[in-house]
Simulated scan of single mutants.
Amino acid sequence: MAKCVKYYDFGKPQDVLKVENRHVQNPGPGKILVRMITSPINPSDLIPIYGSYSHRIFLPAIPGYEGVGVVEEVGPAVPKELLGKRVLPLRGEGTWQNYVRASAELAIPIPVTIDNLTAAQLYINPVTAWIICKEILELKPGDALLVNACSSSIGRIFAQLSKILGFELIAAVRNDIHTKDLIELGASYVINTSESSLVNMVRELTNGRGVSAAIDSIGGSCGNELACCLKPSGIFLSIGLLSGKPVDWKIISQKGEVKLFHLRHWNKQVSVKKWHETFEQLISYISEKKLKLMPPYEHYDLIHVKEAVLAVESLDTNRGKVFLKSELLQL
């Protein structure tokens, strides 16, 4: 028997999450069974629990989109060389459990140079940021990118990618707590929107031209303001809705080209070869110290998942990630 986190109804995680015992099943053809080490708690893990994606979530469900573990068993026709290897068991079962069954061909091997806490968060934010910069926006030297809520985990990755790819990043934040960090990571400018007009500052920094692209994670009036910073041929890309309020799409569509990005859509069309190449590129940047992910903020045993979620929702986790660890393995 092993433990898993499960929810049978949509609602506040504190109300609907349950820790249950679960029989560990054999992996089956083309699958692997992974003994989990640790999983981060991301906003994208919590949003489905509240019911925002209820039309495509089948209950009961196990949360968790990413994490790292060790291959315990392999199914028929799966190379036995995978046994004992650390991998990311992605796009299979939810990762908030002791054991996860996942596709062998989609599992991402983790080199010894990368620690568990870094490996566990290699998927959602790094892949999203990389695909946006390289494939969606096709950013290059001379381009200017504006990102709001930029002190977030993904915002910090955009800052580092600006240094790697050579584009200019203007980071919009609500206070100066993380300004120094963002500049050190690669941001060209940081604008504190609680003290300065975002539109006026961007116009000043770009000599009146506006930015090539803007990435909105907030929505509402913040997203509307972001769109006003675009140059005439600029791209407005929505990747989140932290405010819970949509932007005014009529206004946005008049300011520039509108795009949306959902990682799940990219997953559906990406080849297995390209999937692995993407992770290999990101892993190489991490190994070369060109890219670093969020440090740990706090660790909780899987059985204390409600306390862990409360920490995510009530504390300033821009200082680090909250992780769920399996009691079966130590970090």
Rank of each mutant, 00 (worst) to 15 (best):
L302V: 06
C229Q: 09
K31N: 09
G11T: 09
F323Y: 10
R56C: 13
L59E: 03
S103D: 14
Q25G: 05
L291G: 07
G11R: 07
P296N: 01
L146V: 05
P60C: 08
S287H: 02
E81H: 10
H55R: 12
G320S: 06
L59C: 07
L315M: 15
G51S: 09
E195L: 09
S233K: 02
L242F: 13
V71I: 10
A213K: 02
K80S: 13
V147N: 00
V87D: 13
S314R: 13
L145W: 03
Y65S: 12
S194N: 12
L17I: 05
I286C: 10
N42Q: 05
W266Y: 09
F261W: 15
N26Y: 13
P89N: 09
V87K: 04
K321P: 10
P111D: 07
K255Q: 11
H299I: 11
V309H: 04
L185A: 12
K273R: 05
F167Y: 12
S197T: 05
K273P: 01
T38Y: 01
L205M: 08
F261C: 11
Y53A: 06
T317R: 14
V202R: 02
L293N: 05
E204N: 13
P79Q: 12
N21S: 13
T193Q: 10
L242K: 09
K321Q: 08
V202Y: 02
P89G: 01
M201D: 13
A172H: 10
